[in-house]
Design a protein around this nucleic acid. Sequence first.
DNA 1: GTAATTCCTCAAGTTAACTTAAGGTCAAGC
DNA 2: GCTTGACCTTAAGTTAACTTGAGGAATTAC
Lengths: 150, 150
Amino acid sequence: MQKPNQLSIGEVARRTGLSVSAIRFYEERGLVLSVRNSGGQRRFARSDIRRLSFVMIAQQLGFSIERIGEALKPLPLHRAPTKTEWSKIARNFHDDLEQRISTLIRLRDKLDGCIGCGCLSLDQCGLYNPADSAQRLGTGPRYVISDEMP
Amino acid sequence: MQKPNQLSIGEVARRTGLSVSAIRFYEERGLVLSVRNSGGQRRFARSDIRRLSFVMIAQQLGFSIERIGEALKPLPLHRAPTKTEWSKIARNFHDDLEQRISTLIRLRDKLDGCIGCGCLSLDQCGLYNPADSAQRLGTGPRYVISDEMP
DNA sequence: GTAATTCCTCAAGTTAACTTAAGGTCAAGC
DNA sequence: GCTTGACCTTAAGTTAACTTGAGGAATTAC
């Protein structure tokens, strides 16, 4: 009773390499959408494999699933997107990457300037600039990196 | 009863901009060491301010506290480190940064090559290579990105 | 027709890097 | 001598991205 264009979650898992639980999780977060069959089981479209592949690639590039969800919004759910639609998204990610790279390079250069100077104190070193940081890659709370005076 | 070279945790917090709880946490993780006064309160050395500043800088560069702890191991606890000692560590971080940058650049270039090609599938795209990824920047479990067959 | 898979839905656990809260002690000022 | 304010400890909460487990239906395989 499996229509040709309807994949079970297990099949999608096998084809993408994702775990079943991860796919359910992605659906919960709105990255993919499925329909249910008469027995209440999920059925995915073939095009969702590509969609999920994109999710995995974007994660490798270091994007959060929230960000990826944002990026995927313009794509149609449950219909294969066109090349143009994909490329728009890719270009968007490119710019983001570009920015992260240059931030990192700036920081590295500053570190180079500082090696051996022994000036490691926050007010002098110039390396410590909370504003343009590589921050927010870590996880939990990190509420106040800003200035004092509450 | 505060000796000149003995700072309370509150003072260290004020001078570094860290929160008191963060400093306690760092101590627990071995990034700094304190002694206790007669009443059981922590006393830090002046040199710990610079040590903690370094921790903050390293975090901006995107290093985990575990990694930072490793890096700080060769430094003497509770004695101001020499310039040579500092610069050795900085150089170490530099190499690490260098590597992260080139990985990111490689990925960006691949993305550039892919923009608009519409080939987003894991086996074709060349963008999806779990091995040299920007991975492990995210947080929780991420046990299996590898191949199947358990 | 029944056993073995696969799937479903919660609820709770995991890591990292801290924070917040609760309940009590220490130190400094008046 | 007492009242703030700073400090202490321990336990539990927070985000992200999932996993693991429990208890129960739906499918598939023989």
